[in-house]
Computed example of a mutant assay.
Amino acid sequence: MTEHDGTADTGWTTLRLDRPLAGVVVLTLDRPDRLNAMTDTMFRELETVALALDRAEGLRVLVVTGAGRAFCAGYDLADAEKLTSLGAMGMLDLQERAARALAALRSIRVPVIAAVNGAAAGGGLSLSLAADIRLAAPTAKFNAAFVRIGLSAGDLGASWLLTRLIGPAATAEFVYTGRLMEAAEAERTGLVNRLVPADELLDAAVEMAGLICANSPGGVQLSKRALQANMEIGSYAAALELENRGQALLTRAEDMPEALEAFRHGRAPVFTGR
């Protein structure tokens, strides 16, 4: 991955990109003085970066985290006063731009790991939900307090993703009260996969990314496609059909024969993703 794939490490005003391992990119929300709160600029940059990363040939795993003491505090309240003056269509345009940014991140073909290092509130909660896997520091806090400011918890995919992670009843209680969910409860309810000490969080996310990178790129990518698609498919038969096609496709690629050959000879496979 180079500057030619549109993912240069510099040139962004709200984001930072780092590459700690081959095939692994860490995307950091980089507005620590504002608790990495979201702005229209961040939405534009996030969508652009996500689309570019999805086209980056060598990408295997994306890690998303926040600079400083927060993951993301949601929409920047310094910009919120202008929202009521935008008009219905202007507000819809902003909302759709934000939704496109998170949808682009969620639909990246490779696994996305959120390293939630602090508060994930409002749109920041939605951003963490857009990841496939969430690791959290004990200092992480989650909040969907849209109702406290006269808005709906149906925001940036939260209403759809939360119910699938923690269940409809737990989601209803969480969003109707607008309360904080501490890290321990988030782990217990399944909102996060596991807790990691704060000073080890990013290393743990990169280590997990490395474990994923050791596997067949095509197998991982089609696994993600099957998992996401089957969240939206309403029947067992349709899920089987999707799985059958994915498995048939992968047997035509190079990685499965390589894995079998490596197993026969007692060596580690060399995956190419071709």
Rank of each mutant, 00 (worst) to 15 (best):
L180N: 03
A67H: 06
P269R: 05
G118S: 03
Y75F: 15
F263D: 12
T189C: 08
A67D: 10
M1W: 09
F146R: 01
K141D: 07
R179W: 01
L92V: 14
L151P: 00
F142H: 00
L180Y: 05
A262C: 09
E173C: 03
G6D: 06
G124F: 03
P217Q: 05
Q228K: 10
I108D: 03
L35T: 06
G118I: 01
V196P: 00
L77P: 09
A99L: 14
F271T: 02
E207W: 11
L125I: 05
L29C: 06
G218Q: 04
K224I: 10
T171S: 05
A198C: 08
E187F: 00
P168E: 08
G218R: 02
A169W: 07
L53R: 02
M231R: 14
W12M: 08
L151C: 09
A158D: 05
A120N: 04
A158E: 03
R245C: 08
S159M: 10
V64A: 03
A104M: 07
L151A: 15
C213I: 08
F43I: 02
Q95F: 14
F174N: 00
E207H: 13
I233Q: 09
G234R: 08
F43D: 10
A204W: 03
D199F: 06
D203L: 10
A268D: 15
G74T: 05
G11S: 09
A239Y: 04
W160P: 00
A98H: 07
P217R: 02
E96Y: 13
E258R: 11
A52E: 05
T163A: 13
V270G: 10
L94R: 13
F263V: 07
R16P: 04
